[in-house]
Design a protein around this nucleic acid. Sequence first.
RNA 1: CGGGAUGUGGCUCAGCAUGGUAGAGCACUGCGUUCGGGACGCAGGGGCCGGAGGUUCGAAUCCUCUCAUCCCGACCA
Length: 574
Amino acid sequence: MRWSRSYIPTLKEAPADAEVISHQLMTRAGMIRKLAAGIYNYLPLGLRAIAKVSNIVREEMNRAGSQEVLLPAVQPGDLWVESGRWELYGKELLRFTDRHDRHYCLGPTHEEVMTDLVRGEVRSYRQLPLSLYQIQTKFRDEIRPRFGLMRGREFIMKDGYSFDKDDQGADISYRAMYDAYNRIFSRLALKFRPVEADSGSIGGSFSHEFMVLAQTGEDTVVSCTGCDYAANLERAVAKVAYTPSSVDCPPCAEVFTPAQHSVEEISAFLQVPAFHIVKTILLDVDGKPVAALVRGDRELNEIKVKNHLNADEVHLATPEQVQQWTKAPVGFAGPVALEVPTILADLELEQREGWVAGANKADSHLTNVSLRRDAKITAYVDLRTVAEGDTCVRCGAMLGTARGIEVGHVFKLGTKYSKAMKAVFLDETGAEKDMIMGCYGIGVTRVVASCIEQNHDDKGIVFPPPMAPMEVVLLCLDPANEAVFGPAEEMYRQIQELGLDILLDDREERPGVKFNDADLIGAPMQLVVGAKGLARGVVEAKNRKTGEKVELPAQGFMEAFVTWKNSVYASWGM
RNA sequence: CGGGAUGUGGCUCAGCAUGGUAGAGCACUGCGUUCGGGACGCAGGGGCCGGAGGUUCGAAUCCUCUCAUCCCGACCA
């Protein structure tokens, strides 16, 4: 590609509406342009990066035995009615009608269509297992698109689906995808981590998220410093510390705590450590009141409540609801004599007696509370949010947290869709069975954005070679001078023959502009051909990642270039 | 959907409290001088001031309503 004839509109300044660095840099580097909220045009450089990712994904999916298909973006509403998601999916599903008033939607995901495709053809266990995938544009009408390609409404996703005859087979399919994902993200030279993810009401540990580690990530990854345990914060579990409980707990006593609402206030007022206080949180769970108890120094994880109760929606109760359910204003709720049908307590609360808790009465708390004796606890379950410094459930070492961007998700679906949509087959004994399904996603466009979040500096993008739209930029500083342009073109041609993607900057621009643009678009290798260098018989080469510059001889250039290229790859651990 | 903010040449923004001929920088065109890390001079082109109503002799500026965009919370690759 010659820069002078390419559509690479670089910008000195980033548009004001670009918040995150990947969005700013992709716009400035001429990779993308915004068309509408959460909807982007992919320009040549942007599309090239996407294609690089897609190709690696494709190779590894094929290698793992999955077959590529391409399903429609527009889907009939009937299929969604059949799976039950037409009602459930909410406004994120963009629906519309055609001229005959038939219902359609833009596909946010393809379980329905894929299940429909397979159920029509697969009749026998002999045809299983089957694994299909596609790389395609999805549309989710996000309430709030943000962060450029990180969370667009329209985005490119690889979604794969497996169909197995039994659980064992499904686990093998799942494992194959898990391994493929590890290979994909490794090949892309990303710093990533597979973590155990919240698998919702389906349960089990059959869901992993692949997180690219970056400061700007929206998710928190909990990982053990001692073993390989890693989990999404939503799901992460910590070891319950053993605390001997006092055998004799004196009777409860009411204390006057005027206007002391928060745990910190109570702790200071009563001179009691926060971890001797019970925090009582009232929740609206599918419209019904639920009280959740955690230690005063802990945070409640609402997802855990939701999963334990198999609920659809969990909200914090409004002050009015709190008043109605506890007969007290916010800040004085407690488990004793609480008239709420479901009271869940965190496992840690089982270890001790003599708590301080709200009295369900304005300006009053109770001391010497024994949950066993004084409260009707429905169940003791893990409810707390893990924090930095907690101990690992597996090995007891300390847990740490990091920020991550979810770029992939593997999920064992079970028979949720096959049952609803009658995707059945006959097994060896002639019995009809539901297929066991799995689904596996990779946010292709998000992978590109997250890579930039992870690899950039103040000059621009620092692409790893496998994802770089252009692996080499050759800056010809004097394109009008045939004595310079001739050799530059010759090198350009020879490097192309090596199979590398190279951009020849043949623009009539000042050198400074070219240097800065080259840094901005992030090609891992930069070559500078100018009159001054050639006079000394050298071509300058810069490793974008390390900033290291070396001079390669113009005579016997290709040989020296290949050696240098290998050193650049080596700096990426490749 | 709640809370906050912003809409002025392609981009970044000023002007708006106190109405009176639309501005700057970057980008673009031409000429000249420059030419190894975002040059300089001169001369140009380009704007329904998001849209619709209203107030006023007069509105980018004041009022009302809309639309769009962005940020913070609940969803997700």
